[in-house]
């Protein structure tokens, strides 16, 4: 696998991009939530989506594995390419999309099953043919929660603490070996120590997976991500709500130290939001 450097051009990025958003506009009913997003999410890196609340960053994230399908009235225009295939094409099965693009949610949400079954469930659905014991151990180790879990694999997932539950959920996602892992503010419900552990886990994970993370915590974006996309929201002309748009997408270092846009500078320097 080639390694990307910060100086590569957009053409190079295109060749190795995991996901490519082409003029994506997402609406709830008649009101647009986020519009005209172009973005190339690179393979094998951590990409952070940041911005003030209501800017549509979570909406964009959920659109990447078609979780938005579950929301009544949510529709998407434009296309999201995954290996050259439009995820919103007519023949695409959203269930298969989610088997390749996994997701970790804001609240830890283990199944009401044993820790072992939490991991095995997804793998079984995906027709995993290997050794389940080995898979469970490997996934839990990768998510850095093996030591806490190894003696109580048959206990309920709810017996773990919040931070451990979230790492269990990460392990559950790893177990299906997705190509991309989406994380929707995975630390917002956790204490600082658990947050730190999840961030360390992410550093390990990016060796094997492409990660896209939404975070409201700019320090976290700086700590974990290679690339950062800054979204903002502006009032709609004549409308009541706000519509989000992508302001700037670049290396995390550039976004935070030398942003090209005034709005980005204002946001990362804490002047608004």
């Amino acid at each position: 696998m080639t390694t990307l450097t910060a100086s590569q051009t957009s053409e190079n990025q295109n060749a190795v991009s995991a996901l490519s958003l082409q003029n994506v506009t997402i609406s709830y009913g008649n009101s647009e939530a986020v519009k005209n997003v172009y973005c190339e999410i690179p393979r094998g890196k951590v990409t952070a989506l940041i911005g003030p609340s209501g800017c549509g960053k979570s909406t964009v994230l959920r659109s990447l594995n078609r979780m938005n399908d579950l929301i009544d009235g949510c529709s998407l225009k434009g296309s999201i390419l995954f290996g050259g295939i439009d995820l919103y094409g007519a023949k695409i099965d959203p269930v298969e999309v989610r088997r390749r693009i996994g997701m970790v949610f804001q609240q830890p949400n283990p199944f009401p099953k044993s820790i072992y079954e939490n991991i095995a469930f997804g793998a079984r659905i995906n027709g995993y043919s290997g050794d389940f014991d080995e898979l469970v151990e490997r996934s839990l180790r990768q998510a850095a929660v093996w030591d806490e879990c190894k003696d109580k694999l048959n206990e309920s997932g709810y017996s773990l603490s919040g931070g451990q539950q979230q790492r269990l959920c990460i392990a559950r996602t790893i177990a299906i070996q997705p190509e991309i892992i989406l994380m929707d503010e995975p630390c917002s419900a956790l204490d600082p120590i658990s947050t730190l552990k999840i961030e360390e886990t992410m550093h390990e994970l990016k060796k094997s997976f492409t990660i896209v993370i939404v975070t409201h915590n700019m320090q976290q974006a700086v700590r974990v991500s290679d690339m950062t996309a800054f979204f903002n929201a502006e009032a709609v002309e004549g409308g009541t709500g706000k519509v989000g748009y992508l302001v700037e997408f670049n290396d995390t270092e550039k976004i935070f130290n030398a942003p090209q846009q005034q709005a980005t500078l204002d946001y990362v320097s804490g002047r608004f939001g």
């Binding site: 594995n65 979780m67 579950l70 269930v95 298969e96 989610r98 088997r99 390749r100 996994g102 997701m103 970790v104 949610f105 609240q107 949400n109 283990p110 199944f111 009401p112 469930f121 997804g122 659905i125 995906n126 959920c169 559950r172 996602t173 177990a175 299906i176």
Partner: peptide
């Protein structure tokens, strides 16, 4: 049943039926 649980299952690629 919390919506989170449904998302979790769909998120690992389970169909509605499963």
């Amino acid at each position: 049943v919390p919506e989170d649980l449904r998302r979790a299952a769909l998120g690992v690629g389970a169909s509605r039926f499963v």
